[in-house]
Computed example of a mutant assay.
Amino acid sequence: MSEYPEVIIRTALSFSILFIGARLLGKQTISQMTLFDFIAAISLGAITANLSFNTKLPIHYTVIAYTIFVTIIYGVAYFSMKNRAVRGFFAGKPTIVIQNGKILENNMKTMRYTIDYLNQQLREKDIFDVSQVQTAIIETNGGMSVEKKPEYAAVTRQDLGISAEQKKNFAVELVMDGELVTKNLKENHVSETWLRKELDKRQLKVSDVVYAVRGSNGRLFIDTYDDHITSPVDQE
């Protein structure tokens, strides 16, 4: 029974240091991972898991091990930014599997990459006929980049001689959870007076609004707490 408080404390501590480490290392570690990122994530998870429930291990041992791992990962990431050779060693390099419409079997064998998996990844790119592919590259995170042959490529506005529309702005969140997002208002030069007038037109107060955003087309989208729906379709 006396071990329960220790497990609770260790679990909270393991979550805290894992969260801090993830924030320090950045989004790359939790996005589509390279081989090095995968190893790093598995190692950090194993260390924090041991910290949370393995009461036979002293807390400071696992914290030290975790700190060393984070330092190594951070160091590798830093030197990878500075040196292309280091980046290539740890992250790997893209591999061409189709070039000029020809499948490169030797490159596929090196990666232990099968035709079935090649076709699967092409289908995920909405390509069901390999003969349409000019170039296909397996990126360092395992994803595939594809260039179609010119006759199968999508037609662009430039191909049709149609002028492009004026560049649109990003959507700007103005109200969230019933509160003004003042930072967004200031940074995007959106007048709070204008916003309140728009809300007044709809007989709304800021506190009535769950979410309000000025879209890329300049129009204001507003969603309120009261949706005026008596029987929601997804109601359990």
Rank of each mutant, 00 (worst) to 15 (best):
E3H: 10
E3K: 13
E3A: 09
Y4R: 11
E6A: 12
E6C: 03
V7S: 10
I8E: 05
S16T: 14
S16H: 02
F19A: 13
F19K: 05
A22I: 10
A22T: 13
L24H: 04
L25T: 10
K27V: 01
K27G: 00
Q28S: 11
Q28W: 02
T34N: 09
T34V: 00
T34A: 04
L35S: 13
F36Y: 09
D37T: 00
F38K: 13
F38T: 12
A41R: 06
A41C: 04
L44T: 04
G45A: 11
A46G: 11
T48L: 08
N50F: 06
L51M: 14
S52D: 04
N54W: 00
N54V: 11
K56A: 12
P58V: 01
P58G: 03
V63K: 10
I64C: 15
A65S: 15
A65W: 10
G75Y: 13
V76W: 02
V76R: 02
Y78N: 09
V86Y: 08
R87S: 14
F89N: 04
F89K: 06
A91H: 04
G92D: 00
K93Y: 06
P94C: 08
T95H: 06
I96Y: 08
I98H: 11
K102D: 02
I103M: 13
I103Q: 14
N106D: 14
R112L: 06
R112P: 02
Y113I: 05
Y113T: 09
D116M: 02
Y117D: 15
Y117P: 03
L118P: 11
L118D: 10
E124V: 08
D126G: 03
I127H: 00
V133R: 15
I137T: 11
I137D: 07
E139G: 05
G142M: 06
G143R: 13
G143C: 07
S145Y: 13
V146D: 10
V146T: 12
V146H: 12
E147P: 03
K148R: 15
P150L: 02
Y152G: 07
Y152E: 09
A153I: 00
V155S: 09
T156V: 08
D159G: 02
L160T: 07
L160A: 12
L160C: 09
I162N: 08
I162S: 09
A164E: 09
E165Q: 15
E165H: 13
Q166C: 05
Q166S: 08
K168R: 12
N169C: 08
A171G: 12
L174D: 00
M176G: 12
G178I: 11
E179A: 11
L180G: 06
T182R: 15
T182E: 15
K183L: 08
N184F: 06
L185I: 07
L185G: 04
N188Y: 12
N188T: 07
H189W: 03
S191F: 03
K201V: 00
L204P: 01
K205C: 05
V206I: 07
V209R: 14
A212R: 07
A212Y: 05
A212D: 04
R214F: 08
G215A: 12
S216A: 14
I222F: 00
T224F: 00
D226G: 04
V233I: 12
D234Y: 13
Q235S: 05
E236I: 12
E236C: 05
